[in-house]
């Protein structure tokens, strides 16, 4: 019952902190500037709340026809949808805290997810291009999403909730790093 990465701060409820001896050892051998997890802006909670709310409303709307048709599961379905929405809204701050990235000497590490946790490592030289996307809510809050694309479609590293200026700076930094570590396909 422990997590894949020893993040700081460790997400609550994740059990005892990692004892994993291998990880600090591996990290210590790769000293780098800024070798720690960076989180995303707390304002990203707002984006998550809005998207959870919209998703929950859609879910509730789906149950309405069943209620109107007087099927037996109409009201229970609505109740489930409401509960799911409330749980999603309640967990939004934790979901946002679970997002993190880390610039190491030769690669970028990205992590995300509470229940379905994943950590992706991309060597800088593998970067093909970098996108910066801004949705309507994120734009209102001054946030941007930075997405990088490698030759592997499955890589799927997208860091949401960066302050727009930070996203631009990070993009320039990543491009610079990728340029200095250019490798083939």
């Amino acid at each position: 019952m422990s997590r894949l990465t020893a993040g700081d701060p460790p997400p609550p409820g994740s059990g005892p902190p990692d004892s994993g001896a291998a990880e600090p050892g591996a990290d210590a051998s790769r000293p780098t500037p800024g070798d720690d997890w960076r989180g995303v802006s707390p304002k990203f909670v707002g984006v998550e709340l809005v998207s959870s709310l919209v998703g929950g409303l859609v879910l509730c709307a789906v149950t309405v026809p069943f209620i109107l048709l007087r099927t037996w599961f109409g009201w229970p379905a609505l109740a489930v949808a409401v509960v799911v929405t409330i749980v999603a809204l309640a967990l939004a701050p934790r979901r946002v805290r679970a997002i993190g990235y880390r610039l190491r000497a030769d690669d970028l590490v990205f992590r995300r997810g509470i229940m379905f946790h994943r950590v992706v490592s991309v060597p800088y030289g593998r970067m093909q291009l970098i996108d910066i996307n801004r949705g309507p809510v994120a734009r209102a809050l001054g946030l941007a999403e930075l997405k990088f694309v490698t030759a592997a479609a499955a890589t799927g590293v997208a860091i949401p909730g960066l302050v727009a200026a930070d996203a631009d700076a990070l993009r320039d930094r990543l491009v610079e790093l990728a340029e200095s570590r250019r490798v083939g396909l």
């Binding site: 019952m1 422990s2 997590r3 894949l4 997810g113 229940m115 379905f116 946790h117 994943r118 950590v119 992706v120 490592s121 991309v122 060597p123 593998r126 490698t150 030759a151 592997a152 479609a153 499955a154 890589t155 590293v157 396909l185």
Partner: peptide
């Protein structure tokens, strides 16, 4: 191209991880 390590609820209960090496399609 990149490496991914992930863990769902079931894998976490068993203290396991899913390790994937990502290459071109």
């Amino acid at each position: 191209q990149s490496l991914r390590i992930s863990q769902g609820p079931l894998l976490r209960m068993l203290d396991l991880v899913d390790l994937a090496v990502q290459t071109v399609a």
